[in-house]
Write a protein that binds this DNA or RNA. Structure first.
Length: 268
DNA sequence: GCCATTCATAGACTGTAAAT
DNA sequence: ATTTACAGTCTATGAATGGC
C-alpha cells in the first residue's frame, strides 16, 4: 500500500529512496515541495531575502507569480503591490532585498539550491574548493569526493543534481537574472585563530550571533554547532542554553562577550 | 491622521537522526 | 565520535489594517 503525499492538492506517491532516512513525494510538481524549496531558498542562511517568508511564499506560488526559486528574481514592485496586505514599505523592502540577494556569496547560493546533504558547511567548502557554480556543476564524482567532508553519497547527490533537467533550467534562469555565481577562494584557514573551534551560545548584546561567528571565522577559527571535546572555546552570551552545561562538563574554556570583543579587537 | 489590533518574520534554542 | 541536517517551538519586532 503506497503512502500518499500529505498535501491534498498533490496526491503523489511517497517513497523512501535507497539509503535515505526520510521519504519524499515523487511528484515533480508537488506543491508542498515547491513551497519547501522556495522558503528554504529565501530563508536565512540561504539567499536571505528578508520580508519574504513562509506566508508570502505561499501567496506567490498560489498566484503563479513564482513557480521555482529563480522566479523570485524577476518579481517587480508592481506585482508585489497587487497582493493583499502588501504595502509600499514591505514591497520596497522585498525588492531591495531581492536585489541584494543577487550578490550573495556562492556558498549561500549553493546552499539555497537545496541539494540534499549539502548544508551550509558543505556548501561553503565546495564553493571554496571550486570557485564557481559552473566548476561544481561540471565536476565529476571523483573530483567531488576529493573534497573534505564529501563522501560518495554526497558526491552522487551533487553530481546528479546538476544533471537534472529542471535544476539546469533554474540555474540558467538565475544566471539571466544576474545572480552571482563565482567567488574568490578564501585562503585556506589561516589567521590567529586557525585550528581552533569556537561555539557561541546565548544572545550577544553588541552583534548578532551570526556576525560573531563570521568574524571569528575570518580570523581562521572554525565554528561548531554544539560543544564537543574538540571545542576550544565557548562564547557565552545572555541566556545560554544547554551548551554551557556541556562545556562545563568537558572543562571547555569559556568566554563572555567582553572577552570576545577584546579578542576581535586585539587580533585585527 | 493617530492608535490599537492582528499578523508575519527574524532570531534564537532544542532535540533527533543520519552521514562521515 | 563528531559533525551536520532538519523540524519544532518561543519571543520580540515591525508593518498593514481598520476604527476613531
Amino acid at each position: 500500500m503506497p503512502r500518499r503525499c500529505p498535501d491534498p492538492a498533490c496526491g503523489g506517491e511517497v517513497v523512501r529512496p535507497e539509503g535515505e532516512a526520510m521519504s519524499y513525494c515523487v511528484n515533480p510538481s508537488c506543491p508542498a515541495q515547491a513551497f519547501r524549496w522556495l522558503t528554504h531558498f529565501v530563508g536565512r542562511g540561504a539567499m536571505d531575502i528578508e520580508g519574504l517568508g513562509e506566508q508570502w511564499a505561499a501567496v506567490l506560488l498560489e498566484r503563479g507569480l513564482v513557480k521555482d526559486p529563480a522566479d523570485v528574481f524577476f518579481l517587480t514592485r508592481e506585482q508585489l503591490l497587487e497582493l493583499e496586505r502588501m504595502g509600499p514599505v514591505l514591497a520596497d523592502k522585498i525588492v531591495a532585498n531581492i536585489e541584494a540577494a543577487k550578490k550573495r556569496p556562492l556558498s549561500r547560493l549553493l546552499f539555497a539550491l537545496g541539494i540534499r546533504h549539502v548544508g551550509s558547511e558543505i556548501a561553503d567548502t565546495l564553493a571554496n574548493e571550486f570557485g564557481s557554480l559552473d566548476a561544481i556543476a561540471g565536476a565529476g564524482r571523483e573530483a567531488l569526493e576529493g573534497v573534505p567532508a564529501v563522501g560518495p553519497k554526497i558526491a552522487e547527490r551533487v553530481y546528479g543534481y546538476f544533471r537534472g533537467e529542471r535544476q539546469r533550467r533554474v540555474i540558467e534562469k538565475l544566471r539571466r537574472a544576474g545572480v552571482r555565481m563565482e567567488q574568490e577562494r578564501a585562503a585556506p584557514t589561516e589567521g590567529p585563530l586557525a585550528g581552533q573551534t569556537f561555539v557561541v551560545t546565548g544572545t550577544l548584546a553588541s552583534m548578532a550571533r551570526s556576525e560573531a561567528e563570521a568574524r571569528l571565522k575570518a580570523l581562521g577559527a572554525s565554528i561548531g554547532n554544539s560543544v564537543t571535546k574538540k571545542t576550544t572555546c565557548l562564547v557565552v552570551g545572555e541566556g545560554p542554553g544547554s551548551k554551557l552545561q556541556k562545556a562545563q562538563e568537558y572543562g571547555t574554556k569559556l568566554m563572555d562577550e567582553q572577552e570576545l570583543l577584546r579578542l576581535l579587537e586585539s587580533t585585527k
